[in-house]
C-alpha cells in the first residue's frame, strides 16, 4: 500500500494534465496539418492530371497542327503519312454515348419511378441491393458479355451485322449506366417530401399522376443531373468499347459497323508497341486531354444543375 498515491480522481487528473500537456498539445497542433495534407492530396491529383495532360500534349502539337487535329476527318496514326484528325474518334464516342443513353435513360428512369413511387418498403429492400450489384459489375465483365452474348444475339436479329460494331457495346454501356441513373434519380424523387405527395393523393390523383405531375417535376434537377453524369460515364467508358467495338476510326455514322472511341484508341496504343517519345505515344495524351475536358464539362454541368435548380421544401 502506497500512501502517497492516496488521492482523489480530480487530483490524479490534475497531475496528468500537467505532465502530459506537451504531448497532447503536439497532437492538437499537428493533426489538423496532417489531415489537411490528406485532403490536399486530391488537389495535387487534379494538378497532376492537368500537368500530365498539358505537358505531354504539348509534344504532340509540336508535330501535329491544331488545325489538322480539329479539322481533318481522318485518323490514320499508323499510315506512313499519319493523319491525326480527331473527328472519327469523337464521332465513335458520341455514337456509343447516344446508343447507351437511348437504353439507359428510359430504363433507368422507369426503374427509379417504380422504386420511389410504387415499390413497397420490402420490395425496395430486395431490389436496391440488386441494382447495386449491377453497378458493381466490372466493365471487363460487361465487355465479355457484349462480345459473347449481345453481339451474337444481334447478329441473329440483324443479318449482315459486323462482329465488331457500335450497337452492341453501345447497348451494354447503356446497361452499365442504368443503376447510376436509377439510383441518383431515385434519391432525387425520394427526397420529395411525403406531405407533397399526400396533398396530391388527397385531391384524388392516381399514383401515376402524382409521379408524373408532382414528383418528377419537383425532382427534375436531380433527374437531369443523373442523365448528364451517365453521359459522362459513357464517354469515359473504356473496356466495353475496346472489346466489342472494334478499332476502326470512322467519321461515318453507322452503328452496324466497327468504330473506335477515344478511350479505345488510348488502350490500343498502350497495348501496342508505340515507343516512348514517338508521336503516336504522345497522341494518347492529346486524345486523353480532350476526353478529360469532355467529362469535366459534363460533371460541372451536372453540379451546376443540381446546385442551380435545387428544390427547397
Amino acid at each position: 500500500m502506497n500512501s502517497s498515491s492516496n488521492k482523489s480522481v480530480r487530483e490524479l487528473i490534475q497531475q496528468n494534465r500537467q505532465q502530459k500537456f506537451s504531448m497532447k498539445n503536439v497532437m492538437e497542433r499537428f493533426m489538423p496539418i496532417v489531415l489537411f495534407l490528406c485532403a490536399f492530396v486530391s488537389v495535387v491529383t487534379t494538378i497532376g492530371i492537368i500537368l500530365t495532360l498539358v505537358l505531354e500534349t504539348r509534344h504532340f502539337f509540336e508535330v501535329v497542327s491544331i488545325k489538322e487535329f480539329f479539322g481533318s476527318t481522318n485518323w490514320y496514326p499508323l499510315n506512313s503519312q499519319p493523319e491525326y484528325g480527331i473527328w472519327p474518334l469523337v464521332v465513335g464516342t458520341l455514337e456509343i454515348t447516344v446508343i447507351a443513353m437511348l437504353v439507359a435513360v428510359p430504363i433507368g428512369l422507369t426503374s427509379a419511378i417504380y422504386l420511389s413511387e410504387y415499390a413497397s418498403e420490402r420490395a425496395r429492400r430486395v431490389l436496391k441491393p440488386i441494382l447495386e450489384v449491377l453497378a458493381g459489375v466490372p466493365t471487363i465483365v460487361f465487355g465479355f458479355f457484349a462480345l459473347t452474348f449481345v453481339t451474337p444475339l444481334l447478329v441473329k436479329l440483324i443479318p449482315g451485322l459486323a462482329i465488331y460494331n457500335a450497337l452492341s457495346p453501345g447497348i451494354v454501356v447503356g446497361i452499365m449506366i442504368i443503376p447510376m441513373i436509377a439510383s441518383i434519380s431515385e434519391d432525387a424523387m425520394s427526397s420529395v417530401p411525403k406531405k407533397i405527395r399526400d396533398g396530391a393523393l388527397a385531391l384524388g390523383s392516381t399514383r401515376l399522376e402524382v409521379a408524373l405531375k408532382v414528383v418528377v417535376p419537383a425532382a427534375l434537377s436531380g433527374i437531369i443531373a443523373s442523365i448528364v453524369l451517365g453521359m459522362s460515364r459513357a464517354i469515359g467508358e473504356t473496356m466495353i468499347v475496346t472489346i466489342a467495338g472494334g478499332s476502326n476510326p470512322t467519321a461515318l455514322v453507322n452503328p452496324l459497323e466497327p468504330v473506335q472511341t477515344m478511350t479505345a484508341y488510348i488502350v490500343q496504343v498502350a497495348l501496342g508497341d508505340a515507343g516512348f517519345g514517338t508521336i503516336e505515344y504522345y497522341s494518347i495524351y492529346a486524345v486523353g486531354t480532350l476526353l478529360f475536358v469532355f467529362t469535366l464539362l459534363m460533371n460541372l454541368l451536372a453540379n451546376w444543375i443540381t446546385r442551380r435548380f435545387r428544390e427547397e421544401y
Binding site: 492530371i49 500530365t52 469515359g236 473504356t238 486523353g288 478529360f292 467529362t295 469535366l296 460533371n299 453540379n303
Partner: peptide
C-alpha cells in the same frame, strides 16, 4: 477542395491511367 473531389470522382479511370503512366 470539395468541388475538386466531386469532379475528380467523375474523371474516367483511363485518365488516371495516363497519370499513373506518366
Amino acid at each position: 477542395i470539395e468541388v475538386n473531389i466531386s469532379n475528380l470522382a467523375g474523371v474516367p479511370s483511363i485518365v488516371f491511367g495516363l497519370l499513373g503512366l506518366t
